[in-house]
Every structure is written in structure tokens, then in C-alpha cells.
Simulated assay, not measured.
Amino acid sequence: MHEQQPAAPTPAPPPPAGCPMHNDQQSPFAQHAARGQVNPVNNMPTLAQAPAQGQKMALPLERTMSSIPRASSASSSASGSGSSSPAPMACPVAHGSSDSPDAKAAAPADKAEQWEYPSPQQFYNALVRKGWETPEESVEMMVSIHNWINEEAWAQVRQWEEKHPGGDRSSLAAFTGRPQELSPKARYHLFMAKLFPNTYASIRPFDRHDWTIHRPTAAGTGGSSYMSGGATQPYTAHRYVIDYYHLPNDEDGNPVFSLDVRPAVDDLAAVQERVAKWWELKKETVFGSGGATNLPPGVRVQEER
């Protein structure tokens, strides 16, 4: 996610191993900065808008609102997936202006809240807290790419969700950052790359997220339906796994990423979805115009400068 300046002659360095907004208890750099107060809702420290010690240039304090709807139960302890994964975290989002009583009072009752990205100053403070040395002049570009990748991830989640009744009203309840843990699929592709290097890529994901999605459901007698909206609508929780790959820059120097977004195989329905999607892609590869490739799985996305 590090991005070179347009005039720089050398290529951009590879992205850091994991999103800096995550409160990674295993980080080897954790001892370099105080963690501050941790928000029990998302396991995130409160990141100040004040400049970090030794900071030389002022960074913007404005935060960008994402297009990702925030589940009404995201302010509670709902994880709902039955998974034993780490406590939910918010990667670039949550806590701050959208959590304030005034902001909630001003929001329309029938409009779902949205997750909010951190300001460049908060992002830089997260980098400092992790112990990562980053040029201050690069932070705004990093925030832009970081936000853009999350928007693309949500677009891919929606493609899966909209196949289900009520899925067009699904919302994001929690993030979990697991950058040090390879997903089973990523581990499989790395293994197969050793056997079939012309077909499988030996590229390791630079980050992994688990996202918990709340999908509205039709209610029984006396309940709200997924058409009614509101904080009391019934829902089912579903976990998605997202592997993030950084590919070589294109011929113009634009960064290229591959996002592999898919439902976690927590139940039989998710397995059936994954198999159906695999067969669809396999038919395109075998009978369609696409040939074998050694790129990592997922959707290729490219950032225009």
C-alpha cells in the first residue's frame, strides 16, 4: 500500500504486512508506542487527531465516509458467526464522529449508518504506533489507496450477497485483521505453485481480513421483515474471507492489486456457493477464451494515478 511519488525513479516499496489500523497484539512493533484506550466495541485504540511526536508536516484531519453500510448491531458485541476467530476490529473505520450521540441523532431513522475511514493524521498515528517508518508526504496517497481497496472489497462482497433474498440490504458488522494467518485457500495455492508454477502463483497475500456480514431475513409472525429495515430487523450473520495480493505495477507505474473475496466455509450453504463459483470459473477457463494463468486468485483491480 506504499505508493511512490510520480517523480520518483525507483519503484514503490511493497505494502506493509497488514493494515496499520488493526490493533495487532502480535505485532513486533507494539512496544514502540503506547496503545492508549482500547474501544471494547472494535478492539481498536483511540487514535488522536493531534500530530505525532516529531511530525514535521501537517496532515489533513478530515475523514471520508465510506459506502459500506454499518450493521445496527455493530455497536454491540454481535459477531454471530459462531467462529473462534479473534475479536472483531475495524480496519480503517468505526469510532469517532459517526459514533457520537449528536451524529446518531442527526441521522435519519430509516437510513443505515455507514463506516467512516480515518483521517490521514489518524492513519499516520497508527503507523507510528506500529513502529513503521513512513514518509509523511506519502500518507495521503496511502489513505486514498487503502480506502479504495476497502470499497472494492465491499463491491465484491455485494456480488455474493445480492444472490440471496435480502442480500441487497446486507451490512457490515465487524472486521477482523489476520495478516499473519494464511487462509486455507492461500496456503493451497502456494503449495500448488511449487508443483505447477505455470498455473499457480507463488505470491503470498500481504493481508487478510475476515468480515462479518449481517444479511436481513424474512421474519416470522409478528416480526419485521427484511423489507422494513430498522434496528430490530432479523438477520443472519455470515463470515467472508478476503485475501489481498499486491501485483507488479503496470507499464505506467500504477499499482495493481488482486482481491480474493469469498464466503468462509462455515456451513453447507457457503460450501455450495463456493463450489458453484469454482465450477463457473473452471468452465470459463476450459471452454472460454481465458487460458491458464499463474496470477493469484481473485479480482484484479488497478489504481489510476
Results as ranks from 00 to 15, higher is better:
Glu3Val: 14
Glu3Trp: 13
Gln4Tyr: 00
Ala7Lys: 09
Ala8Ser: 11
Thr10Trp: 11
Thr10Gln: 07
Pro11Thr: 02
Pro14Gly: 01
Pro14Ser: 09
Pro16Gln: 10
Cys19Asp: 07
Met21Ala: 11
Asn23Ile: 06
Asp24Val: 03
Gln26Ala: 14
Gln31Tyr: 00
Gln31Arg: 11
His32Asp: 05
Gln37Cys: 09
Pro40Lys: 10
Pro40Phe: 11
Val41Lys: 08
Asn43Val: 05
Asn43Leu: 11
Leu47Asn: 04
Leu47Thr: 14
Gln49Arg: 11
Gln49Leu: 15
Ala50Lys: 14
Pro51His: 11
Gln53Asn: 10
Gly54Thr: 13
Gln55Ile: 11
Gln55Gly: 06
Thr64Trp: 00
Met65Gly: 13
Ser67Trp: 02
Ala71Phe: 11
Ser72Tyr: 15
Ser75Ile: 15
Ser76Gln: 14
Ser77Lys: 13
Ala78His: 00
Ser81Thr: 15
Gly82Ile: 05
Ser84Cys: 09
Ser85Thr: 05
Pro92Gly: 12
Ala94Phe: 09
Asp99Gln: 12
Lys104Met: 06
Ala107Asn: 12
Ala107His: 15
Pro108Thr: 06
Asp110Met: 09
Lys111Trp: 07
Lys111Gly: 06
Glu113Ile: 06
Glu113His: 07
Gln114Gly: 06
Tyr117Gly: 04
Tyr117Phe: 15
Pro118Lys: 04
Gln122Asn: 02
Arg129Met: 12
Lys130Arg: 12
Lys130Trp: 07
Glu133Phe: 08
Glu136Asn: 01
Ser138Ala: 13
Val139Tyr: 00
Val139Lys: 04
Glu140Lys: 07
Val143His: 00
Val143Cys: 14
His146Pro: 00
Asn147Leu: 00
Glu152Asp: 00
Ala155Tyr: 01
Gln156Thr: 01
Arg158Tyr: 01
Gln159Phe: 03
Gln159Lys: 14
Gln159Ala: 05
Trp160Glu: 09
Trp160Ile: 14
Glu162His: 10
His164Phe: 14
Gly167Gln: 05
Ala174Lys: 06
Ala174Cys: 06
Pro179Ser: 14
Pro184Asn: 09
Ala186Met: 08
His189Ala: 08
Phe191Lys: 10
Leu195Asp: 08
Leu195Asn: 05
Thr199Val: 12
Ile203Asn: 05
Arg204Val: 10
Arg208Ser: 07
His209Asp: 01
Asp210Asn: 08
Trp211Gln: 04
Thr212Trp: 06
Ala218Leu: 12
Ala219Val: 13
Ala219Ser: 09
Gly220Ser: 13
Gly222Cys: 08
Gly229Val: 08
Tyr235Arg: 10
Ala237Gln: 03
Arg239Pro: 04
Tyr240Thr: 03
Val241Glu: 07
Ile242Leu: 13
Asp243Ile: 10
Tyr244Ile: 10
Leu247Ser: 01
Asn249Pro: 07
Asp252Tyr: 00
Gly253Pro: 01
Ser258Cys: 14
Ser258Pro: 02
Val261Lys: 02
Asp266Asn: 09
Asp266Gly: 04
Asp267Asn: 15
Asp267Cys: 11
Leu268His: 09
Leu268Phe: 14
Ala269Pro: 10
Val271Ile: 13
Arg274Ser: 08
Ala276Cys: 03
Ala276Gln: 08
Trp279Ala: 04
Lys283Gln: 04
Thr285Phe: 04
Val286Ile: 10
Phe287Val: 06
Ser289Asp: 12
Ala292Met: 07
Leu295His: 14
Pro296Leu: 05
Pro296Phe: 03
Pro297Met: 05
Gly298Ser: 02
Val299Leu: 06
Arg300His: 03
Glu304Ala: 12
Glu304Met: 01
